[in-house]
Amino acid sequence: MLTIGIESSAHTFGVGIVSKGKVLANEKLMYDVGTRGMIPSKVAETHVKNAKTVIRMALEKAGVDMREIEGVGYTRGPGIGACLQVGQLAAKTIASGLGVRIVPVNHAVAHAEITKHEAGFKDPVTLYVSGGNSQLLKLSKGPERRYQILGETFDIGVGNMLDAFAREIKLKPAWGSTVAKLAAKGHYIPMPYTVKGMDFAFTGLLTYASSLAGKERNEDLCYSIQETSFAMLCEATERALLLTNSDELTVCGGVAQSSRLREMLAGMCKEHGMRFGFAANEFNADNGGMIAYVAERMLNSGVSAALDRCDIEQRYRIDKAVVY
């Protein structure tokens, strides 16, 4: 069976094609956020323009014909309404045109599941770190499995925090990757560090670092905000692993592309003799491959939705989605 997955929750329009758990294509086109941030209607407009192209790119890459597609998945949420609608519409059009089954997918579940699959893990604790989200997750037991949130940010996601700081010092925001570059040449300045059990908060850190902009070297600020925020994530993660008696950790989401964060998590796991895994970067950025992967699993489990029930949900929390 060939399943196509469409992702459009934010600035990426992504299309993936999966067959038997194998990602054959994972193509995308992105709206350039630049330094101005996201204007939902502009992003959605770009997605509309790009949709056909990305679908064609994916089919070509997989070497298949549209008529061979037997299942469709799309991101139901969480995300920006106007953006989600474009993917939803594309997915519904394909499904009704081909007369095949369609299923809505939770974006965060898709990140966690594709990463578990790629790492070859069974029952990991998952640190999900993207722009708007920073959560510690573990799948519940029992017949209806859902991701439980063990800990999460009290305020903003670590990606948005790093990006807000990047803007503050006139860098391009990109999940902290521009901050990371400067950080390589920095020295440590003590900054607020907030962890409560398995939860954490970033605004205090952001406010403090921003207040030093122009007064301290940007390199030092980037180094310190990165080291501090990642150490916070590591500490909460370590606590989650120990509390749940887990011996596997995965990290996923946009910020999971950070080699420094990975290095810290790997070091922490090594100290405890735990296994640490992550997926290729194409799956940490927003992508359609992970949507197709989860959609295929859902369709194989007999789950699908009638076309008129295929909605979107901007605040679709991960712990509301059943995992198959």
């Binding site: 440590y188 003590p190 560090y193 080291e227 501090t228 990642f230 150490a231 590591c234 500490e235 290095e263 810290m264 998590l265 070091g267 922490m268 100290e271």
Partner: peptide
């Protein structure tokens, strides 16, 4: 000590 975080931050904490 936690080797995964930098020593200054680690000792401060």
């Amino acid at each position: 000590a936690k080797a995964y975080r930098i020593m200054e931050l680690d000792e401060n904490l």
